[in-house]
């Protein structure tokens, strides 16, 4: 079994285990490469037909190419898509990157997702995050409990030793399942190439720039790159020293704020 097959095997095992434990489950699809890979793994896990809904949280500020991609592949793959959008917040003037720059995410992402979960009574969500993506995500588990407010108490998580997963949660808990946790960014792209997974064109370089991570238009900037094919992206990732989410405004701001607070002794 090669490296990618091992990764795929564990991910499919987790997805099947999750579906067995939580019948009322959904997949969160951000239209990015990781969640699209997760979607692909879910199809493989259930022989081509995903037996649960797929949720897209629409902040109203995504790239037009992301909406086109979502609609095209929803139709082609026969996905049961639920779009969550906080129309109330948008009507009340909440826009991307307003106020303290984190508030918009809470209203347009978290609140939208809460509403979708409440309405559909989902007990668990499959989310395509990876440990190597961001410092704080390194603390995640494959089966990660959240409380009713979506809060994550990372100091009080079940151990996951020797691939033993605590897939049964407490009654009030909501569980996040992370089948891609052990993948790296490079693994994802090599798997996309191997499986010929459809991927958004924004990832491929145009005029010397490409998006390495996709978010809202005002909070995401492209990185300098000439990688306009899958092979070139894979080669680029083998040598790059730029962080994957370097184009995400929120992450940059957070890192800057943290560093400043540290220098002032507040942390």
């Amino acid at each position: 079994m090669n490296h990618l097959e091992k990764l795929e095997n564990l991910s499919i095992y987790i997805i099947r285990e999750a579906y067995k434990q939580f019948k009322n489950i959904a997949l969160l699809w951000s239209i990015g490469k990781d969640s699209t890979t997760t979607l692909w793994l879910c199809r493989k896990a259930f022989y081509g037909k995903i037996p649960f809904p797929v949720i897209h949280i629409d902040t109203g500020f995504k790239f037009p190419e992301m909406y086109e991609f979502r609609d095209e592949w929803t139709k082609k793959l026969g996905i049961n898509l639920i779009v969550g959008k906080n129309e109330e917040a948008l009507n009340n003037g909440i826009t991307c990157c307003m106020d303290d720059q984190m508030t918009c995410c809470k209203h347009l992402k978290t609140e939208s997702l809460k509403k979708v979960i409440e309405k559909n009574k989902f007990k668990a969500l499959i989310v395509g995050i990876r440990r190597d993506e961001h410092g704080v995500r390194a603390k995640e588990r494959y089966f990660s409990p959240r409380d009713e407010e979506f809060r994550w108490n990372y100091k009080n998580q079940p151990a996951e030793l020797w691939d033993q997963f605590k897939s049964k949660g407490e009654e009030d808990n909501h569980i996040r399942i992370h089948p891609l946790l052990h993948w790296t960014e490079l693994d994802i792209w090599e798997y996309i190439r191997q499986e010929n997974i459809p991927i958004n064109k924004l990832y491929f370089a145009k005029n010397g720039r490409r998006y390495r991570s996709l978010g809202c238009t005002r909070a995401t900037v492209p990185v300098n790159s000439d990688a306009d094919t899958l092979d070139k992206i894979i080669e680029e990732l083998k040598t790059t020293k730029t962080a994957e989410r370097s184009g995400r405004a929120q992450d940059k701001e957070k890192a800057y704020i943290m560093q400043k607070l540290r220098s002032l002794g507040y942390m």
Binding site: M102, G135, Y266
Partner: peptide, 13 residues
């Protein structure tokens, strides 16, 4: 109590 709790910057919410 703090600007940052559990590595998360606190917001109004």
């Amino acid at each position: 109590h703090e600007f940052v709790v559990d590595n998360e910057i606190q917001t109004r919410d």
